[in-house]
Write a protein that binds this DNA or RNA. Structure first.
Lengths: 123, 123
DNA sequence: ATATGAACATCATGTTCATTG
DNA sequence: CAATGAACATGATGTTCATAT
């Protein structure tokens, strides 16, 4: 029963979860594929010094597929003659929203920790 | 010359650095030893779900020694008959403050990323 | 038994390689 | 050669063990 095994010590949110959140939100608003999502994220976060790597994006997308949150289609890329790409859609909007809520909890937590560190150490 | 090797992709601040910041600040304000610092940090962060482990505290302290930021003395613990403990003091206040400034930069960066994630995904 | 520390194990992530169209 | 993905390597941290008082 009460076999307690800590899964982590609960420091800040992990990159994987952070990316998944953005992936879901972007896909909720349109049709996207891996590289496009990566470019978008890099563009948004480069000013803050964060440049995610492509394998991490794919790992996040694969997990969201496994979770049943996303589904995937294959299409020919516009303009490109031959390349086939994997486009993602929301499979289960309920699940997606529930997962986002979960991540929000973790981000709020991280937010509080960081604000606290600023207060405790620089004032 | 320009052999660029990325040291990381620049996601959020690492636990090690976060702890070092707190260690310095606490030691600036009094006499502390490892377990005491750990207890204090756990007490402060447990409400936010963060419970650091003792080896991570020691690793952080050891690095701060190596960096010449802290120095260490050994004393007999009050009240305890035999246990000997390692107390830490600031060795170089300039270095300490410079290091804190550096970490502040990283925390500010993390703060912006987290705020951005809240704005981008939940509004 | 408490404090310190080292050694070892695992997980999250980064780097490199392979495949396909 | 762009996109996807797997395989491999490293780094950050967690878990367990050892030592001293």
């Amino acid at each position: 029963m009460s076999t307690k095994k800590r899964e982590s010590t609960g420091f800040l949110i992990k990159q994987r979860a952070f990316l998944k959140l953005y992936l879901i939100t972007n896909i909720e608003n349109g049709r996207w594929y891996g590289m496009k999502l990566l470019d978008e994220l890099r563009k948004e976060f480069k000013p803050m010094g964060f440049e995610p790597q492509h394998p991490e994006i794919y790992r996040a997308l694969h997990e969201l597929l496994e979770d049943g949150i996303l589904k995937r289609g294959k299409i020919k890329k516009d303009g490109s003659k031959y390349q086939e790409i994997a486009v993602y859609y929301i499979r289960d909007a309920e699940k997606a929203s529930a997962y986002k809520k979960l991540i929000k909890y973790d981000i709020d937590r991280s937010y509080r920790m960081i604000r606290k560190a600023l207060e405790d150490n620089f004032s």
